[in-house]
Design a binder for these strands. Structure first.
Lengths: 223, 223
DNA sequence: ATCAATTGTCAAGAAAAGTTCAAGAAGCAT
DNA sequence: ATGCTTCTTGAACTTTTCTTGACAATTGAT
């Protein structure tokens, strides 16, 4: 299931950078420089976004006000992205129900990690369907035609990443990242997880219905 | 397709380490310790490199200046590699259109991941059309009129090179280079790849629709 | 027409990448 | 601790891809 990010950031270059980066990780980002517009858009469908990234330094409106208004309407996770100088306001942020905090400048990768952490935290009891599968990220159970199996954490992470990029090639490196494994993890390890995963969802590598091996490239979920 | 990396790094040991590591992943790295020389080389052919890795702490020139000059000339992705102490300058970097950051010391593996992410972002040319064909370089699949075949890496490299030079003669030596094969590869090997390729795309050497043999010269893609 | 050079394809074996086993390590719950 | 599950990885095994010699077919030159 593709995750949607609402980005409220007035620095257009920063906006672009983050959008592109998140894009690489399979997120769909909608960005606004103007908080009023962002809020208007948010009100249209408060459940549309999985996480909101909010810059505190905004024109027209105080970032805290934006935060309050969002939280008053729907409990979408918020990550505050603010200049280092505003760090003093950190506590303040948490009081508003902010879920995480990043001081600029930060590494785009760091942001992705935070988002993932929050989504994992927030992704309670949420079960959704993709193709033949019904996945429950909370219990890590996958149901396929009346038949339910439980995946391990790593298997679930890998499965989700394959699903998020279905009909696209996914390298082992990407999967290592997606499952937050150490960077020096061997390829064999991924193969093994794929093997176990295939076994659990009843797939056959020689004649794959779901996960296809791409020689010298990685794997792909057949969409 | 081999990716080229321009490495600007004054620590020679670091330079060697990174070069070697990237080499393992199939990148061709050109390294400079001196930013002026690097820039001169860059100006020679600004499109020659797919990504530039730039150390901020350089002799003779400020890293930011290098960055600006590069970006002013051509929008090659830049990854800044800086000592942890310089992190404070990060925001400055973003303003310069830097694409990603790495704080030293870092794992070479991490660098490879960043490069791949950036190339993925930059190389969104993933799927494109040429004549009757739709090629997907990510999955190495070629579609021709509803019919899809997957090529091997070498076949894809050869096919791309033929396509890039369509209606021009291409020698076997060129194809050997294009597919990064050893220089002493026999001609028969290329013929065989061509044969397999023809078979996959449904071409007949005696009556070629796509790949024509040029006696004593090589092959050419009929445009 | 004859001949040498070049090309097409087969088939065999080498090399590379993928799959799985199995054993031990690491993590977790009781 | 103890037992259970999960994770990791080398090694064995399988499959795919690559390479190349062999030989027939084709081409161009004489």
């Amino acid at each position: 299931m593709t995750k949607h990010v609402l980005l409220i950031e007035d620095d257009l270059q920063m906006q672009q950078l983050i959008s592109d980066y998140l894009d690489d990780f399979g997120y769909v980002t909608r960005a606004f420089a103007n908080p009023k517009e962002a809020l208007e858009h948010f009100y249209d469908d408060p459940k549309a976004y999985d996480v909101i990234i909010l810059d505190l330094m905004l024109p027209q409106m105080d970032g805290f006000d934006v935060c309050k208004k969002i939280k008053a309407c729907h409990d979408t996770p918020i990550i505050i992205s603010s200049a280092r100088g505003d760090i003093g306001n950190k506590i303040h942020g948490y009081e508003l129900g902010v879920d995480d905090y990043l001081a600029k400048p930060y590494e785009p990768r760091e942001l992705v990690l935070r988002i993932e952490a929050i989504l994992r935290r927030a992704g309670r009891t949420e079960s959704f369907q993709v193709g033949d599968f019904t996945l429950d990220t909370a219990t890590r159970e996958v149901t396929i035609e009346e038949y339910t199996v439980s995946l391990t954490k790593i298997e679930m992470d890998i499965f989700l990443h394959l699903l998020q990029n279905r009909s696209h090639a996914v390298s082992r490196e990407q999967l290592i990242q997606a499952a937050s494994l150490p960077l020096d993890t061997k390829n064999r390890t991924i193969d093994m997880h794929i093997s176990n995963l295939r076994h659990k969802i009843g797939d056959d590598p020689k004649n794959p219905k779901y996960i296809r091996s791409l020689w010298g490239i990685g794997y792909k979920f057949i969409g």
